[in-house]
Design a protein around this nucleic acid. Structure first.
Lengths: 335, 335
DNA sequence: CTGAAAGCGCTAACAC
DNA sequence: GTGTTAGCGCTTTCAG
C-alpha cells in the first residue's frame, strides 16, 4: 500500500480514455476493441488496480457471492466438523470458483432465521446453497417462498418447491442392506436417526430389503455421531448380547463408532458382524478392517447445485435431481 | 419478495424522520435516543428491512468480512478435506461470528497470488486469516508487506513480520517422543514431512528427545496423507522387516494410515509398535486401538487469531502467540 | 439529539 | 467503438 488507492477514474485519466471504457474493458465487454481491452487490463495489472467490489455491487445490484449455509439441527451433536459435510463444502467451493462466484460461509446457528432478509435483501449474496436438510425444513421453505434463489443438498425425493440435489438414499439403504443379506447376515441392525430426511430414506431402503428377505428389522435410533453409535452398540451388547450379525449404519462416522464397540469385545468383523456405512469418507478406506460404504458423488452433486443455482439467478427454474451412488465393498462386509 | 425492496430513505419517510436518524438508529449509535432507536429498529423488522451492505460498505470503506484462505501446497495430496484444517475453519467461523464478522472462504488454488490486491484492494474483505503456512511463505509475506491486516495459523516460532498463532510444535514433538520412549520404545520412526514449517518443528522436538535418550533417529519423509503413510510403512516393513518399535506421526491421519499397515500384518499395537499422532481429531478416539495424540487447542487459537486480526484492523500491532498443547494418552502407546 | 447534503466508486443508459 | 452523465443506497461531516 505504498500509493494511495487508485480509482477507475484515475486509471481512465492515466490511459486518456473515459471511465466507461475502462469499466467495460476490465469487465471484458466485447463492445470494446480487443486491443483497447488488452492495453487497459495490462495497465490495471501494472498499477495494481482492482475494481472496488462494493461500488460495483451497489451499482450493478449483484454480488457474485453465494452464501453456503451448513444446516445442523440444534439438538444433534453432529458438529460443524463432520467430515462429510465439510467435504461437500469443499467441493462446492471449487464448483463456485469455477463459475467466478465467491463463497460466504455460514451455519444455521449464527445467521438469523430469516435467510431471505439477512443474505439476499441485504445484498450480501445473490443466492443460497443449503448443505443438509436437517430435521426441519422451515427456514428453507420460508426463504424459498420469499423467492430467494436457493438450492439444497439433501434428499431429492422430499417434496419441495426448491431444487434438492442428493443421492438416491432409498436405493443406497436398500443396496447396503441387500449386500449384508447376500453376505449371509440375518439380523441386521439399522443404526441411525430415521427422523432426519436423508436418513429416513436410507431407513426405508433398509426396510424394503429386510421385508423382501423375510427377516426381522431392528432399528436402533441414535444421534448421528460416532460416540452415540459406540455407546448404543455397547449398550445393546450389554443388554441382549450379540443379538445381530449385521449393521447398516447411516453414515461412516456412525459405522466407525459401532466398529470400535465390536472390536473392543473381540467380536469379529465381518465374520460375527458385517458392516456397511454411508458416505465413503477417507477413513473408510483407512480403517481396519476397511469399511464398506455407499459412496455419494459429492463432486458431481456440487457442480449440479451450482448449475441449478445459476439457472435460478438467470430467472429459469430448476428441478431436484438424484446423483448416482455406488456400493464400495471392502473388508467389513466380505465373508 | 412481495413488495419491492425498501430503502433507508423509504423507511425514514415512513417514520417521519431523516435518513441520518434511521441510519444511526439501525447502527445502534448512542447519539440517538434509546426510545427512537427502539422504535426504528422495530419498524425495520416489521417491514423486513435490511441495510444494503454494498452501499454501506462503499460509503464506510469497511466490509466486516474476513477472507479465510486455506493454504495448501501445490504438490501435496493433502486435500481441502483434511479434517484438521476444516475443524480449524469451523472454529474460526464461530470466533468471527461472535465479533460480527463474516467469513469469505477461499483456498490458495483459486485466489490469484496477489492476495492484497484481490481481497483488500478490491474491498472484498478487511483482513485475511491464512490457515496453514505450507512450505512457502511467499504469498503471505507479500501480503503482509503490502500492509494487509493478516494473521496466520501456523508455527508461531517462524520468524515473521505478521502474527502467527499456533501450537508449540517443538514441545509437542518432544512430548510425543518422550512418551514413546517412556513406554519402552527404542527405535522410533518419525513419519512426516520435515520440510513443512509446523512439522519441521515437531521433527526438531523428536530429534531432541531422541538425542537426549541416546538412541538413533529414523526419519521417514512422506507426503502428509494417510495413504502415503500406509504405503511408506508397508514398504519399510517389506524392505527391512520390523525394524522399529515406535512411530511418532506428524498428524493423526498419518498415524491412522500407519496403523492400518501394522494391523494388516498382525503387528500388535502398542506391544510391538507404540504410536502417537498429532491433532487429536475425532477419529483418534474412535479408532481401535484408540490413538494417543497431541491435542491442539484450536478453539483458543481461533479466538486469538480473530483478536489479533481485529487489533490490526484498529491500527494496533499484534505478536505471534503459542497456544498450549496437551498429550492425550490412549491405548496406542500404553504398555 | 436530529437534519441537510455531499459523496463513496462504479456501471449502464443514452449520446455521438 | 467510445464518452457523458446520472444515479445505486448508504454514512458522515457540519449545522442547528
Amino acid at each position: 500500500m505504498t500509493d494511495k488507492k487508485l480509482t477507475l477514474a484515475d486509471l481512465a485519466k492515466l490511459a486518456g480514455v473515459s471511465t466507461s471504457t475502462v469499466s467495460r474493458a476490465l469487465n471484458d465487454n466485447p463492445l470494446i476493441k480487443q486491443e483497447t481491452r488488452d492495453k487497459l487490463q495490462h495497465l490495471a495489472k501494472q498499477h495494481n488496480f482492482s475494481l472496488n467490489t462494493a461500488a460495483s455491487r451497489l451499482r450493478s445490484q449483484k454480488t457474485n457471492v453465494v452464501a453456503v449455509i451448513i444446516n445442523l439441527d440444534g439438538d444433534t451433536e453432529q458438529s460443524i466438523s463432520d467430515p462429510f459435510l465439510l467435504k461437500v463444502v469443499g467441493e462446492i467451493n471449487l464448483a463456485l470458483n469455477k463459475q467466478g462466484l465467491e463463497l460466504l460461509l455460514s451455519n444455521s446457528f449464527m445467521a438469523s432465521d430469516d435467510w431471505a432478509n439477512y443474505f439476499i435483501n441485504s445484498r450480501r449474496a445473490d443466492g443460497i446453497i443449503v448443505v443438509g436438510q436437517g430435521k426441519s425444513q422451515a427456514n428453507i421453505e420460508a426463504a424459498a417462498n420469499a423467492g430467494v434463489p436457493l438450492v439444497v443438498w439433501g434428499d431429492p425425493k422430499t417434496p419441495s418447491n426448491y431444487p434438492i440435489v442428493g443421492s438416491d438414499n432409498y436405493l443406497g439403504g436398500r443396496l447396503a442392506s441387500e449386500h449384508l443379506l447376500a453376505a449371509g447376515a440375518k439380523n441386521i441392525v439399522f443404526l441411525g436417526d430415521p427422523g432426519h430426511a436423508e436418513i429416513g430414506e436410507r431407513h426405508r431402503g433398509y426396510m424394503a430389503a429386510i421385508a423382501a428377505a423375510n427377516v426381522t428389522p431392528h432399528v436402533v435410533s441414535i444421534d448421528i455421531t460416532s460416540r452415540a453409535a459406540y455407546q448404543a452398540i455397547n449398550q445393546l451388547l450389554l443388554d441382549k448380547g450379540l443379538c445381530f450379525d449385521g449393521i447398516m449404519a447411516c453414515s461412516d462416522m456412525v459405522a466407525l463408532g459401532a466398529m470400535k464397540a465390536l472390536k473392543e469385545r473381540y467380536i469379529s468383523i465381518p465374520n460375527d458382524v458385517a458392516l456397511v456405512g454411508f458416505d465413503d469418507i477417507a477413513m473408510a478406506d483407512i480403517s481396519h478392517p476397511s469399511l464398506s460404504s455407499i459412496k455419494q458423488n459429492t463432486q458431481r452433486a456440487s457442480v449440479l447445485l451450482v448449475e441449478k443455482l445459476l439457472a435460478q439467478l438467470m430467472g429459469h427454474s430448476a428441478q431436484s435431481q438424484v446423483v448416482e451412488i455406488e456400493l464400495i465393498s471392502r473388508q467389513s462386509s466380505q465373508r
